[in-house]
Design a protein around this nucleic acid. Sequence first.
DNA 1: CCTATATATACTCTATTCGAGCATATGTGA
DNA 2: TCACATATGCTCGAATAGAGTATATATAGG
Lengths: 351, 351
Amino acid sequence: MNMELSGRRKPSSEKLLRESGDEVPDATAVGIGLNAAIIAVLEDEPVALAVRGDADSGGATDALPFGPFNPREHRTLEGGLRAWVRDQTGLDLGYAEQLYTFADRGRHIEPGDSSPHVVSIGYLALTQASGQHGLTNGVWRSWYQYFPWEDWRRGRPEIIVREIEPRLKAWAEQPQAATTPQRPIARADRARICFGLDGAAWDEEKVLERFELLYEAGLVDEALRDGRSAAQNWPDRVRLGLPMQTDHRRILATAIGRTRAKIKYRPVIFELMPDEFTLYELQKTVEAILGPHLHKQNFRRLVEGAGLVEPTGDVKTRTGGRPAKLFRFRREVLLERPAPGVRVSAPPSRS
Amino acid sequence: MNMELSGRRKPSSEKLLRESGDEVPDATAVGIGLNAAIIAVLEDEPVALAVRGDADSGGATDALPFGPFNPREHRTLEGGLRAWVRDQTGLDLGYAEQLYTFADRGRHIEPGDSSPHVVSIGYLALTQASGQHGLTNGVWRSWYQYFPWEDWRRGRPEIIVREIEPRLKAWAEQPQAATTPQRPIARADRARICFGLDGAAWDEEKVLERFELLYEAGLVDEALRDGRSAAQNWPDRVRLGLPMQTDHRRILATAIGRTRAKIKYRPVIFELMPDEFTLYELQKTVEAILGPHLHKQNFRRLVEGAGLVEPTGDVKTRTGGRPAKLFRFRREVLLERPAPGVRVSAPPSRS
DNA sequence: CCTATATATACTCTATTCGAGCATATGTGA
DNA sequence: TCACATATGCTCGAATAGAGTATATATAGG
């Protein structure tokens, strides 16, 4: 992407849409950035690959690995992504899927300014990070450093009750918080639904909605950096999770939400596992991602009953008790079921 | 992190990613095209808005409405989309969501060529198209003109048995069809799963997978246009659905699949309905989208039981029998349930 | 060797959900 | 008035999922 986009006119003849005969006005030329949320589970901890920001670019704030997409070098977006991830981190991505394309220029930028435009395409990649093996750059960081309120492995996180709930309640009571046609759901209701306040159910997939709500309420650092009013009449500032550069935390939130949703209907959990594993290890990995503890016996029954795994015949000893059978992913399930995944139904909750 | 990974070091000052201090190599400049799959249901027929291609651009092939994204004029992608859709068609979009970003340059283009690059971002929009009211450009076309094999409203479509199955079987028997590490699922299995051959279950959400399979097999016009070998040793050519320009049919397939999936866990079906409707009208709309016939009494129970609708108190007479109560969408359901939608479970099918 | 203990795994019980069908209500039109 | 068509309420049985109990088999320490 050339930066002439910032204001030059392009000669001609180039077509915007093949066969459509349209032309690209200069103003529409932009650069494409690819962002990768690379996710793994290390010792029962869900982690994402983070690179360290330069000192001159937002301090030492973490960033997701990212690079430009060069359409001359790579025929597909995913191909470009894989190439520079390998160059930059030494990782060979296995599973990768596109998440979302962001073009907002930071919410404090006025229309008509002349800064260069970048469209970032977020990707989710799942990998198996046994040790730091092969990693030449970047560090694995727990998700929950960026999103502490998402960590329900030891019950409802303290930070929700102590920090988030009172601030969101205060934010919801501001005069502009009422329901309007443009804002069909009131602030208080959004807070309740997103964070499971006042007895509402916690939905572990709403990771992005929660982050965006905190952003709107001015409770995450990114919001302040983007020029939103600070912590809404609340005297003391608090840091809710580690910030990241630009909108990287938003992309990571999207990635986490997508992962949590996807393992329920696609066997992507096995992208995070070694070839052989015990059912308890599988359960621990699922719990690392989803949060709540699952009923062990039922988990076994569901996973085996769904045909997701098959015993290898070996056992793993030294587990501290009776040796556990080793299992492997049963690929044939892809041929048998339309939506194979780890079914973990929520407790029956009526309004 | 900086982009030295991309090979070049940047002189200075201009920034690729705000706060990250990176620069964009010229080669990465692209234009952004926005494509909208605008979906409605007209008289129990699911339709998409199509515009007619120019004579010099692919003949009279249909296209989805599309336009460039101009980052100077619009702060967000969705804002830009809404603006030119209004200009171009007269429609004010209600619900819109991003689908996918395509950057493939048509599979016949060699790396390194100098044609202009366009990234197309596909959007799904749902609207209520009562009459052609307000439409200044474009026509509503049934989905099933483009995807006749998706129309299961009158049982399994003939075209699958008569045209698709034998051609896919022939394609699967070619020598290169075997399973390899790069191709973990054999052609025959993919065909079976996608199209429900040999007794496999039909999954109405796999719209994109089916289209891509037909593309790979050289059975849709777009594949031939892109330079893929023609109908794989099959003597007679047949047109499987109406083609569209470039990859628009792929975007529409993505939109249809997303719509079919989404109405099951989000109340988006009501974007396609008038304010008041009978439960049977609602069922007909759902069936227009999903295909198979639903059990009427259970549909009522599920929809009412889920709190998705509430009676208005009025009835609609002249239905040909007992008058039907009118209902409206019950917005409060958004506050009560994490994933409200039209639950229509598939018949229990074991492998 | 024996026992305590920790984990693995099998089995049972029960409430809920969902597909399917029957029965009844209330209009329209011949 | 009666046939008919659609709307709507109710019941039944199979499948499923949450939860608990019981049993198997290793390790660790005396």
